[in-house]
Write a protein that binds this DNA or RNA. Structure first.
Lengths: 240, 240
DNA sequence: GTCTATATGAGGATAGAC
DNA sequence: GTCTATCCTCATATAGAC
């Protein structure tokens, strides 16, 4: 509410600055405070949920007092909305970038495996944002979800294209429904943020298992033999 | 709080009665009100989260006034705890039952496919309980999670045994980590409650795709050819 | 068994000092 | 930029009528 709120306006200006400048000067002023608040909010949101997220808890985590938050964000809802959007946005940007950098002759299966790696990597990296998103998507008031839904639509389309390519290549096993398979795969990956414990399984193990499951689960003809030793680590490399 | 609370005691007695009697007499008195409240609580909890669940909303959904809830449950927390536990409990019971009824000579892969079917079926059936569980597991105060954690441990062990059998049969592809694969599979299934829309995909489509993905994703040697036409529907039948 | 009325407390948001 | 003090709203839980 109160759209003309002075602190909100100021905050928005700062944010635009951060986002636009690629690597101009240093992360700039002590306006890294904004980042601290955002990270803190993701942390609390993932653990307490939308309704349970107290400005006081966020402030504790960010090492300042609650009213200071209003200097950077117009309201509690505005802050939470940005957490949800940021998580979705960063994952999509990262996966997009990785796919763009793949050689043109990369096969559809390998592209999917690369996407699996990119998704998993960033999701586990940004686990507070990821779990905040996962747990609260269905619990947010609709009007706070517009940006997030746009992100997710775009991200869904990206995956849909990957599966489409696989299908057109005749490599998608015919008893699979493409859309359903895609949602099941993404679900398996998303869920990983809920259970992954770095002290129990290495990231490599999770990645290798996920990629193998996807590769063999999806594709009909096995171009699998010659990849056998390769699936262990990143698929971003050779494709010849 | 207030453990000796009269209404709580009364409520517990009624519940025990409901649970014990298999099909004795009718669902008994208007104490089906308790079920209505429980269902309503699952509905609200899944959409608003632990902290956002208001007794008033539950009351609206159950078609009574908020204070009436205290006749059946000792407190808000007690009610919520029971929702979380009920979801986990019913799924485990159902899957256990289905597995127990399988012929003794059922192969490990087929047993896993049967478990996939049972899990998916009950999860989509009880979607309010399922999504309540999924979204709020990480957001509940620890002291409300004891029963639920016990359920989940038992359920995890059940799946672990399924994968163990597959492994000992030499059918688990060697590049897979059993525990990780299991968590990824369950994750894919759990997530389905988040996106499944009966008006878009039939239950059959989801089930068939999930089973196929799991079967081909997990197993090394293909005993797949002779099952091809069978994976479409339940796997509970033939195994000869 | 279910209601109306109310005591009590927690948390978002603002004003204004520094 | 960040703090202290304060207002106001709203939800749990209880008391007690019907």
């Amino acid at each position: 509410m109160t759209p003309g709120h002075p602190s909100a306006r100021r905050a928005r200006r700062q944010k635009a600055g951060d986002g636009a400048a690629p690597a101009d000067d240093a992360p700039s002023k002590s306006s890294r405070t904004r980042e601290r608040i955002l990270d803190a909010a993701a942390h609390v949101l993932s653990r307490k949920g939308y309704a349970g997220t107290r400005l006081g808890d966020i402030a504790d985590q960010a090492q300042l007092q609650a009213p200071a938050i209003y200097y950077y964000f117009g309201s509690r809802d505005e802050l939470i909305e940005e957490v949800m959007w940021t998580g979705a946005q960063r994952v999509r940007e990262h996966v997009t970038k990785v796919l763009d950098e793949l050689p043109d002759d990369t096969t559809p299966v390998d592209r999917i495996c690369a996407a699996v790696e990119a998704h998993l990597h960033l999701e586990l990296e940004l686990s507070d944002f990821a779990t905040a998103l996962i747990r609260n998507s269905g619990q947010m008031p609709e009007h706070l979800r517009t940006r997030q839904l746009a992100e997710e639509a775009a991200y869904g389309k990206l995956w849909r294209n990957l599966f489409q390519d696989l299908h057109e290549d005749g490599r998608l096993r015919p008893d699979l429904d493409a859309r359903t398979a895609q949602l099941l795969v993404i679900g398996a990956l998303n869920w990983a943020a809920e259970w992954w414990n770095p002290r129990r399984d290495t990231y490599e193990t999770v990645l290798r298992t996920a990629q193998s499951l996807v590769r063999h689960g999806l594709s009909s003809r096995s171009q699998l033999a010659d990849e056998a030793g390769d699936t262990a680590r990143g698929t971003t490399r050779r494709t010849s």
